[in-house]
Nucleic acid binder design. Structure first.
Length: 219
DNA sequence: CACCAGGCCCTAT
DNA sequence: ATAGGGCATGGT
């Protein structure tokens, strides 16, 4: 299969996943940190604690007024709570410089903003790009572990460098926010179902066109 | 019991 | 430059 066909293939299998990352832009700022190496269910528990305590509105400003210890307690179910509380604190102090006005960030050029985010300790490329794509609606493609695994399994492409993978996708797909959001979501949902550590190629609709499946006689 | 999950930073070669 | 360890909860 060709990489440029991946989107329509996944669409035909899974339908539309739309704007796949749930929540308001403010919530996405938070969940982008919480979901680092953590399953989404635990992120939801942590967010529920936050919203139960702070309400739904203006959570960034409210969170930033809490101590790191207090934040750590609230986000406990998400795991790595001490380090994530610090990372959240640092992000919130950055946002405070803009009075928590995400519109101000949206007006900035993508590349400048990405550099600013990457300077924040605890925000790496994936977290930065998730914030850019889903919270700020900037056209940049998010690469995660599922994306790498799916590239390896289906296409036998093994790239270690984040930017290389991102460039690969962005050279095949035009810079469209909704397209990038949905393609990333589709990749994750597909990989979760069929490209787990114990692959389920037998149930995968792509097994005829999947390198891994063919290689192992599973198609 | 072991292993995994929508990463990132720090350290030792 | 890059491999390895630490961070921690909840599900399978």
């Amino acid at each position: 299969m060709k990489l440029e066909k991946l989107y329509e293939k996944l669409r035909s299998i899974h339908g539309s996943v739309g704007k796949w990352w749930p929540g308001t832009p403010e919530e996405i700022m938070v969940t982008a940190i919480l979901t680092q190496n953590t399953n989404w269910k635990n992120v939801e528990r942590a967010m529920k604690n936050i919203e139960k305590t702070l309400g739904k509105n203006d959570i960034l400003r409210k969170l930033s007024s809490l101590s790191t210890e207090r934040i750590a307690h609230l986000i406990k179910p998400a795991g790595f709570f001490n380090i994530k509380a610090e990372r959240l604190k640092t992000l919130l102090e950055f946002l405070k410089e803009y009075n928590f006005n995400l519109e101000l960030l949206r007006e900035m050029p993508l590349e400048n903003l990405r550099e600013l985010l990457l300077k924040i300790k605890g925000i790496g490329k994936e977290t930065a790009d998730a914030i850019l794509l889903y919270a700020l609606e900037k056209p940049i493609f998010v690469v995660d572990s599922y994306t790498k695994r799916l590239l390896l399994r289906i296409f036998n492409i093994e790239l270690k460098d984040y930017d290389e993978i991102q460039k690969l996708f962005m050279s095949y797909y035009p810079p469209d926010v909704f397209l990038y959001q949905e393609l990333h979501g589709l990749i994750v949902e597909h990989a979760k179902r069929f490209c787990s550590k114990k692959p389920k190629c037998g149930e995968c609709p792509l097994n005829k066109e999947c390198f891994y499946s063919q290689m192992n006689g599973l198609s």
